[in-house]
Design a protein around this nucleic acid. Structure first.
Lengths: 203, 203
DNA sequence: TATGAATATGAATTCATATTCATATTTTAC
DNA sequence: GTAAAATATGAATATGAATTCATATTCATA
């Protein structure tokens, strides 16, 4: 940010700008969003945006900062130790439920990243978050199924994460299916995919 | 296209331009590709590109036209009538195998669309292709499992298509997993996901 | 209520990229 | 061999979006 708002008016303006930007980024993606449109939606002028943010990138960075704390909590709250005794259903449930809560409360966040593939900046800002997530779910898999080789588990983790991300995107884009339905099917896909893997190796 | 090439020289130039553009679009996405870079890669000048193509969009349209015939053949070759007697494995195999062949021979095509999410033009050009695909696989499902309601089948089709598309993208982006491996896992994901659905309803 | 700091404004500027155009070269057809 | 058509070139221009900046207004504080 170029300068922190000092007055109540400024703080409000920054809030409004962030909300408008979040909304617009979610609708059209980061690259397709223009500063003029953000200003228009925020009921302000481009100058006021640059009063507080050094550039368009700064707006996105501020948004990511706002969200990133919540994002990491989604995964760190989970106790990996508990997993060896759980069934595949329970493991997936334990991973997907907090994610669902987060998505429900941060629809824009999900939409921004689902609509901004191809933006180098967005990819860059998401990389650490994705990395954190991948590492966390990988730990969970390793804890739950120590008898399977880490290399195999990494592959399954990759597949599962890809499926999850794409179905989250589907929930956002399609009017034919609700978020709840998507999560229900997501759970089915993952459980049914992983069950034979774990059973076979677990015997 | 602005004008068809008349001479051998022109036809060659158009070919080279299309190949260079296809490559670049695949690498960085349609929006991030510049005409200057396409010209540089094609060893020609921007003027020569505009000799044959009316604009950047025209290059993409020409590429899509080149591919679209092959794409549709992937699906129309499949005989939907044969499906009622097939197992889930066989159905998925029958759908995925031709797709795999197509992808193998048209890596760029897949990459362009996997790297150009967020481009309005690319979405627009892909819409009919995706629609055709969705309709075709939906028909296959309906033929194979007439006892399941079309509405349900549509939902499963949506989920399956989303999974397939995302895993194709994974194959392109990740160095950790090969195209063959991706297709193997894709087959597992789909078969395991759909088997309980079909068994339950089929009894 | 006066003064400086904070905030607001949008026209002007910058900048990157698409597109055009005047001009040059090569090929074709007679 | 030569004129017309086709193709080639890249500097000039057009375009649109990000960013700046001179100027105006509002707020906090004495």
């Amino acid at each position: 940010m170029r300068s922190e708002p000092k007055q109540k008016r400024g703080k409000q303006r920054v809030e409004i700008i962030l909300n408008s930007a979040s909304e617009l980024f979610a609708e059209v993606g980061y690259d397709n969003a223009t500063i003029i449109e953000i200003a228009a939606r925020a009921g302000t002028s481009v100058g006021s945006i640059y009063q507080f943010f050094s550039n368009k990138e700064g707006i996105l960075r501020a948004l990511v900062e706002k969200y990133v704390e919540d994002v990491s909590r989604v995964y760190t709250d989970i106790d990996a130790e508990a997993f060896p005794s759980m069934t595949v259903e329970e493991i997936m449930q334990a991973v997907l439920l907090p994610l669902k809560e987060f998505i429900r409360e941060n629809r824009d966040f999900q939409a921004i990243f689902s609509n901004s593939t191809g933006s180098n900046l967005v990819e860059e800002l998401m990389a650490p978050i994705n990395g954190m997530w991948a590492q966390r779910t990988n730990e969970i898999f390793i804890n739950a199924y120590p008898q399977i080789s880490p290399k195999e588990l990494k592959k399954y983790n990759l597949i599962c994460m890809t499926v999850v991300k794409s179905l989250l995107g589907l929930a956002h884009h399609s009017d034919d299916i609700s978020l709840d339905e998507v999560f229900e099917e997501m759970q089915h896909v993952l459980v049914r995919y992983m069950t034979p893997v774990f059973e076979e190796m677990g015997e």
